[in-house]
Simulated assay, not measured.
Amino acid sequence: MSRRALTLLIAGFLVLALGVVGAFRPVPYVVLSPGPTEDTIGTFENKPVIAISGRQTYKTSGALRLVTVAYQGGPQARIDLLTALRGWIDPTVAVVPEETIFAPDRDPEKVEEENAVEMTDSQDSATAAALNELKIPYSTVVTVVAVDKGTPAEGKLQKGDEFNTVDGKPATNGDVIGNAVKAHKLGETVTFNVTRGKEKLDVTMKTAAGPDGKPRIGIQMQAKYKFPFEVDINVGDVGGPSAGMMFSLGIIDKLTPGELTGGKQIAGTGTIEPGGQVGAIGGIAQKMVGAREAGATVFLTPRDNCAEAMKAAPEGLRLVRADTLHDAVLALDALRTGKGAVPACETR
């Protein structure tokens, strides 16, 4: 063998070896793929996804599927280059920079915890939105979720305290409480009536200067809903707020006679506000693929996701635009009865 041929052979081998080694090197990307779907009027691990007690419920049919995105990779378990390349080729998945999912300055475990909190908040908002749609009254109460150390509230208020009044006026929301505190001068006394366990207590404290120099007492608050019956939602470790609209529709279907789906396989996504506003989500392309694979023929889509959804919708999946929960209910009624308008996604 000539020296030239030998040199080319060795060079080719080295390039191949480097390519093989490089293919298995970790890279800072995340692969997003269609995740599991769950039927909000069905069961999860042999238990109802939505269990309602203390209120009459009705028979349902078909499916109202929430959809998810699965991810592979992350700072603690990076994918290799070969996996990323396969993802770039596969039209049903997306490969995105790691920082779009995991901010560089945030602990991945903390992100998972926040997703779990968002899911819990989403379930409460979904219940509130469903009850608003059905005109079923409920109440809210502001609770203490944390007390800052070294502040006037330390030793006075406790986590879990429920506010009744502030300075003798109803504490209807967090803004009312915050504004009442700020209306005082530094060092003035603010008076609360709170429910702690089974007791109602009057609690007083003097305001102190916060980092911005304005009066504060040093607490973190959260609105808590008090519903007239119990709604328990069970979806395992699914996190994030994007299933909100589908939870609301599942609750409505169970609380009303007739079958909202008309026996169809309906899927959808979107955050939900207590007032019924539907918000945009991420991963719409992967969620639609998961929905179609699960048998869905209709996909409820937030308005701000429509443009992206229209480019990636799989064959056989009809996109129905949902600006609000009420719109979604009307659209499902129209699909079931054949009467009324069914808003479609359209380019803007």
Rank of each mutant, 00 (worst) to 15 (best):
Gly276Cys: 13
Gly276Leu: 13
Gly276Ile: 13
Gln277Cys: 00
Val278Met: 04
Val278Tyr: 01
Val278Thr: 02
Val278Phe: 04
Gly279Val: 09
Ala280Thr: 15
Ile281Asp: 02
Ile281Tyr: 04
Ile281Arg: 03
Gly282Glu: 05
Gly282Ser: 07
Gly283Gln: 06
Ile284Gly: 03
Ile284Thr: 09
Ile284Met: 12
Gln286Thr: 09
Gln286Leu: 01
Gln286Ser: 04
Lys287Asn: 06
Met288Asn: 01
Met288Asp: 00
Met288Phe: 03
Val289Gly: 04
Val289Asn: 09
Gly290Tyr: 07
Gly290Phe: 04
Gly290Met: 10
Ala291Tyr: 03
Arg292Asn: 08
Arg292Phe: 08
Glu293Asp: 13
Glu293Met: 07
Glu293Gly: 00
Ala294Pro: 03
Ala294Met: 03
Gly295Glu: 13
Gly295Cys: 11
Gly295Met: 10
Gly295Arg: 12
Ala296Gly: 11
Ala296Trp: 10
Ala296Met: 14
Thr297Ala: 09
Val298Leu: 05
Val298Glu: 12
Val298Trp: 12
Phe299Thr: 14
Leu300Val: 00
Thr301Cys: 12
Pro302Glu: 10
Arg303Gln: 14
Arg303Gly: 09
Asp304Lys: 11
Asn305Tyr: 09
Asn305Leu: 08
Asn305Gln: 06
Cys306His: 12
Cys306Phe: 13
Cys306Asn: 12
Cys306Arg: 11
Ala307Gly: 10
Ala307Thr: 15
Ala307Cys: 00
Ala307Gln: 13
Glu308Ile: 09
Glu308Tyr: 08
Glu308Gly: 09
Glu308Cys: 08
Ala309Ile: 13
Ala309Val: 12
Met310His: 06
Met310Gly: 08
Met310Thr: 02
Met310Val: 04
Lys311Phe: 04
Ala312Pro: 05
Ala312Ile: 03
Ala312Met: 11
Ala312His: 15
Ala313His: 06
Glu315Ala: 15
Glu315Phe: 08
Glu315Asp: 15
Gly316Cys: 12
Gly316Tyr: 11
Leu317Ser: 10
Arg318Tyr: 09
Arg318Ile: 10
Leu319Cys: 05
Leu319Ser: 04
Val320Ile: 10
Val320Gly: 06
Arg321Gln: 15
Ala322Thr: 15
Ala322Asp: 00
Asp323Met: 06
Thr324Val: 06
Thr324Pro: 02
Thr324Arg: 10
Leu325Gln: 01
His326Ala: 15
Asp327Ala: 13
Asp327Phe: 00
Asp327Gly: 12
Asp327Asn: 13
Ala328Thr: 04
Ala328Phe: 04
Ala328Gln: 10
Ala328Ile: 03
Ala328Met: 06
Leu330Arg: 14
Leu330Ser: 13
Leu330Thr: 13
Ala331Gln: 04
Leu332Glu: 08
Leu332Asp: 10
Leu332Val: 06
Leu332Met: 14
Leu332Gly: 06
Leu332Thr: 05
Asp333Tyr: 14
Asp333Ile: 05
Ala334Asp: 08
Ala334Ser: 15
Ala334Pro: 04
